[in-house]
């Protein structure tokens, strides 16, 4: 029943690095875009807000699969050359989840009490100083739990890169293992799921550490939740936009 277990594990492991690369790359781009567009949505300039809003709605409103197909099959026609699949995948993950992350950043910045802005104005700090020194450090604490959920969605989304021939874990199982070991399909797919589960748990541990650090930064006692537990977002109080969503 467990014949070939070590073959399965080693084959899936060969995709592990690419899954991690895609996820980490996606997380880096998504984080940068989240802050850029999240803050842009709070800009005083109507044009800047509009541009940010269009980015967010387009990337949340279309499907990740369609985005992958588009960058892999359509973009080469438009620009004349094909992008390396891994790079294309990372870019789509970053742009897609950055759009969700932008809403997280916007919400967290808006959740900082108005009194903090006023305190900063009374000390004659410039708008940039207010944001960087006073508001963002406090908003950070609010952002960490939703970003934890977002990054796990992104990890899950990295499996779709199999569709544009990135040889990550799902690809290894689907294209390398399954056809020759169809009678052990349950074992192969269970192993793949467990690999993803472990990665998701690692993300959660990392984010919990980040949350404790951020809580100390604002002089709050970190709460007593275990380091493994994700905080659930308040599912009923979210705002609706074209994103919908499990984030």
């Amino acid at each position: 029943m467990f014949d070939n277990l070590s073959l399965f594990v080693s084959t899936i492991s060969r995709g592990l690095l690419l899954t991690v690369e895609a996820t980490v790359g996606g997380i880096l781009i998504a984080t940068v875009l989240s802050f850029v567009f999240g803050l842009a949505m709070l800009s005083r300039s109507r044009t800047v807000r509009l541009v940010a809003r269009i980015y967010v709605e387009i990337w949340r409103g279309t499907s990740e699969v369609v985005q992958l197909l588009w960058i892999y099959f359509v973009l080469p026609v438009l620009i004349g050359y094909r992008i390396v699949p891994l790079v294309a995948g990372i870019v789509v993950l970053g742009l897609n989840f950055g759009a969700y992350g932008a809403e997280i950043v916007r919400g967290a910045v808006q959740s900082v009490p108005k009194a903090q802005y006023e305190g900063a104005i009374a000390l004659n700090l410039t708008p940039a100083q207010r944001m960087r020194r006073v508001i963002l450090p406090q908003a950070l604490v609010e952002m960490v739990p939703p970003f934890n959920n977002l990054f796990i969605q992104l990890l899950k989304g990295s499996a779709l890169l199999t569709m544009i021939t990135v040889h990550e874990m799902t690809y290894q199982a689907r294209e390398v293992l399954i056809d020759r070991n169809i009678d052990q399909a349950w074992l192969i797919w269970t192993l793949v799921l467990l690999f993803y589960l472990v990665l998701a748990i690692l993300i959660t541990i990392g984010m919990r550490l980040l949350e404790r650090w951020a809580a100390r930064l604002v002089g709050r006692k970190p709460d007593e939740r275990s380091i493994f537990s994700r905080r659930k977002k308040p599912v009923l109080a979210e705002t609706v936009s074209a994103g919908g969503g499990p984030l």
């Binding site: 009374a122 000390l123 004659n124 100083q129 406090q138």
Partner: peptide, 29 residues
Amino acid sequence: KRIGMVFQQFNLFPNMKVLQNLTEAPIRS
């Protein structure tokens, strides 16, 4: 620049210790 204000709810910055609350604006501004 010439005006300062003390608020009903203090509005101290929780992300800074007491000393930094006092030095932040004199340094930056």
